[in-house]
């Protein structure tokens, strides 16, 4: 084993593999089960930071403007991200409303904010407090952000309603679609191993 190499245990099958953590742009897979061990992404911090900045701004837009609006003779209604949560709460489904709030508003927003905090501090070498804790919480809540599922729900709801009334798309929906795309892109550009290592060196 040369000094540039490092031992890692596969997350899925526990086999010890040797990788080179500094190989630029390289992907390493477990030799037994094929799981991705590590992917050294190119310009990870800069790219992710650009995306997350856009994401934060667009998320505020997505929250404040109507997503869909409905028109039937004389009557018109519209919804934003939060109105669904409030209405579920008023109809007595408090558990459901809380879940929808967490999965579609709070967690996606907190995820953007956390990544923004960590990446800004790494990019400009600012020693901001609690970075390791924040990145750990980010990993724990990661699976519970469900922007893409909500997106599909919007499409299904739209198609369902076209029979009854005219449905039109609001600014909120465009911003929401952008947020979803950005959130996917961040998971493609973010390199958690790099961040862990940088944070460990300067906690």
């Amino acid at each position: 084993m040369t000094p540039r190499q490092q031992l890692v245990a596969c997350r899925d099958c526990d086999l010890i593999n040797t990788i080179n953590p500094h190989a630029y742009g390289e992907r390493f897979q477990c030799t037994r089960c094929g799981s991705l061990l590590r992917h050294n992404k190119i310009n990870s911090i800069e790219r992710s930071l650009a995306l997350v900045t856009a994401g934060l701004i667009l998320f505020l837009v997505a929250c404040s403007y109507p997503i869909l609006s409905l028109k039937v003779v004389g009557a018109a209604t519209s919804n934003t991200l939060i109105t669904g949560v409030i209405d579920l709460y008023h109809y007595g489904l408090k558990d459901c409303s809380l879940m929808v709030f967490f999965m579609t508003i709070l967690i996606p927003f907190v995820k953007f904010a956390m990544i923004f905090y960590i990446l800004t501090s790494l990019r400009w070498n600012l020693y901001l407090p609690k970075r390791l804790l924040i990145f750990r919480v980010y990993h724990i809540i990661d699976t519970w952000g469900m922007l893409e599922v909500y997106m599909l729900a919007i499409i299904v709801a739209m198609v369902k309603l076209t029979d009854f009334a005219t449905v039109s798309i609001g600014i909120g929906l465009y911003a929401f679609i952008a947020c979803m795309v950005i959130s996917f892109s961040i998971s493609a550009t973010l390199d958690p191993h790099l961040i862990w290592e940088r944070l460990e060196a300067n906690p």
Binding site: I67, L88, S97, A153, A157, F164
Partner: peptide, 14 residues
């Protein structure tokens, strides 16, 4: 969760 989200949208909109 699709169904739950869809309900939250429909309830608010309709």
């Amino acid at each position: 969760m699709l169904d739950i989200f869809m309900i939250s949208i429909l309830v608010a909109l309709v």
